[in-house]
Amino acid sequence: MKKRLYLELENCIGCRSCLAACTQCGGHEERNRNYVYDVNPLVNRQTMPLMCLHCENPACARSCPAQAIQIHESGAVLSALVEKCIGCQNCTIACPYGIPKFDTEQNLMYKCDLCIDRTKDGIPPMCASVCPSNTLQWLTDEEIENKKKQFNLDNGKWVTSMPYLEGETNVKVNLPGILQGITKLY
């Protein structure tokens, strides 16, 4: 059963468990590859996570001169192949969400690979498995479809991905109801 990472952004409580969990994934070498942002840092405590959304037409891979960024059969856009990455940093410039990180010492780009060692076997990625507030979930397409119905899509306020993103992505994003003035029941 194919599952996807699914984000309900407004659930985020800013605990940064996903960052800490990311460092512990095999091969991540104790460095996290995701982000948590304060939405309005001087006014309130609302935070939102930002991770690689695994585009269906990834700009990072398109702009890579070395073909170092491969796409896994599950749709995950993998971190650069270490022997191929030439350290030009085109991917960091190309990514519409600013996700790839670059290590100048190792001359190597690294980015979220959706914990491919786990997700290829159907185990949720580290971030989703630790998230205490259900911001990051690991769901089947059917479950995501049910979410859509549950949140009454007809009012046009609940939308996954487009048009708030730049293209179709494998990770599905639920836009925050709270900030749009919609009360959501969990």
């Binding site: 952004l9 939102m48 930002l50 600013g98």
Partner: peptide, 11 residues
């Protein structure tokens, strides 16, 4: 660029 994306989500 990351904050800009957050801005697209939150308004």
């Amino acid at each position: 660029r990351r904050k800009y994306r957050i801005a697209q989500f939150s308004g």
